[in-house]
Design a protein around this nucleic acid. Structure first.
Length: 125
DNA sequence: AATGTGACATACC
DNA sequence: TGGTATGCCACAT
């Protein structure tokens, strides 16, 4: 019997992988006003609980996407505005959050558990 | 295919 | 409490 063709998982498999970023954008756009979510939550929602880094990577690309991707509503699991440095100016992230009713202190979201919006829960995919 | 990078998460010291 | 190290996943080169 011939050996089966070894299908090496290419790191750049066009198709579903391509959706990853789009999925991330979609989820972020679904975040209600005045709420925040975490990279890990989004990753988990996309069936890749460990892809939190890639989610952040997606946010990097999301900068300037349309429709607008409220990246400021995405924080790390501690509720820390770790990505504020990627905003212009960095303080805009906090200002945007506060403008939506999310209190931020020392780059940390207050009442994080209350404003936290988990797609796996709310969307219950 | 291999290597480097990153807006995370977790474990350890 | 905080820095260091490792894992993990997806993208760029």
């Amino acid at each position: 019997m011939a050996i089966n063709k070894l299908k090496v998982k290419s790191q750049k498999a066009k198709g579903e992988n391509e959706d990853f970023f789009l999925q991330v954008f979609q989820v972020v756009r679904l975040v209600p006003n005045g709420r925040v979510t975490s990279y890990g939550a989004i990753a988990k929602y996309l069936s890749s609980p460990k892809a939190s880094r890639s989610v952040g990577y997606a946010m990097n690309v999301a900068h300037g996407q349309k429709p607008v991707v409220p990246a400021h509503r995405v924080v790390n699991r501690n509720g820390l505005l770790t990505g504020k440095h990627h905003f212009s100016p960095p303080s805009s992230m906090q200002e945007k959050l506060e403008a939506e009713g999310v209190k931020v202190k020392n780059d940390q979201v207050l009442n994080f558990e209350k404003v936290f919006w988990d797609p796996t829960l709310e969307l219950a995919l």
